[in-house]
């Protein structure tokens, strides 16, 4: 097993672990906002790492076999990961704002300044 293969396996393992933590958080946390903490952060991070494994694989195959198909694979995987990170943050903010506007209160909250501000 070469160093590149170990790197790829490590990235895949980190990705699966964090995706699993995100889904467990989605099932375990008590209310909407805390669930969103788990899903947005953990699944974004996990998916970035599984994509990173694909990028490393594509680049290593490109440099060893000089086939431009693998370069295309790496670049497109990078673009997909970038789209994912950016869109997840924006859609999380959109859903949180919409949920608060529709009147869902955070459970167990010690303070709610947005409710006091009444926007």
């Amino acid at each position: 097993m070469t160093a590149v293969e170990i790197l790829i396996y490590a990235c895949l393992a980190i990705g699966v672990v964090f995706n699993t933590l995100g889904v467990i958080g989605l099932l375990r946390f008590p209310d909407l906002y805390t669930r969103m903490h788990a899903t947005t952060k953990a699944t974004t991070f996990g998916s970035i790492f599984t994509s990173l494994a694909v990028i490393v694989f594509g680049l290593s195959m490109f440099f060893s076999q000089n086939d431009s198909q693998y370069l295309t694979l790496a670049i497109h995987a990078f673009l997909a990961a970038a789209c994912l990170a950016f869109t997840n943050a924006v859609s999380a903010h959109a859903i949180a704002r919409a949920a608060h506007r529709s009147g869902i209160k955070p459970m167990l909250a010690v303070v709610d300044r947005l409710e006091e501000a009444k926007l």
Partner: peptide, 20 residues
């Protein structure tokens, strides 16, 4: 909104699986 974020999670995982 709970259902919406569950759907969002499914979408994210689908994209990761498609790249693989």
């Amino acid at each position: 909104p709970d259902r919406a974020i569950a759907l969002d999670t499914v979408n994210t995982l689908t994209i990761a699986a498609m790249i693989l």
